[in-house]
């Protein structure tokens, strides 16, 4: 799912090369931390978080092989 978040983020920002996603794990979730160029942060969050919410909605469809869910954090 890391690739998908990267793909979506790259399609939305001005500096696609600066997009990076780092995967970390907790007991009940896989956390995807999304990094972008500072001036692009707003683009992946959106007005009232609408973009971030939409990305999370898409992530909700996915489950890791072991049943854990994905969560998205924007850094």
């Amino acid at each position: 799912m890391k690739e998908i978040v990267e793909h979506i983020a790259r399609s939305l920002v001005d500096n696609p090369d600066a997009v990076k996603v780092i995967e970390t794990e907790t007991d009940d979730a896989i956390v995807l931390r999304l990094y972008t160029a500072p001036e692009d942060v707003g683009k992946v969050i959106g007005k009232q978080g609408r973009v971030a919410k939409s990305i999370r909605m898409v992530l909700k469809l996915a489950t890791a092989p072991d049943g854990r869910k994905y969560t998205l954090e924007i850094e």
């Binding site: 919410k53 898409v58 469809l61």
Partner: peptide, 20 residues
């Protein structure tokens, strides 16, 4: 399942695709 409850996932995807 891509549709989601009342189409909410579909709407999210549609929103993102329009931005892209």
């Amino acid at each position: 399942r891509v549709i989601g409850r009342r189409g909410e996932t579909l709407n999210a995807l549609q929103y993102l695709v329009n931005l892209a």
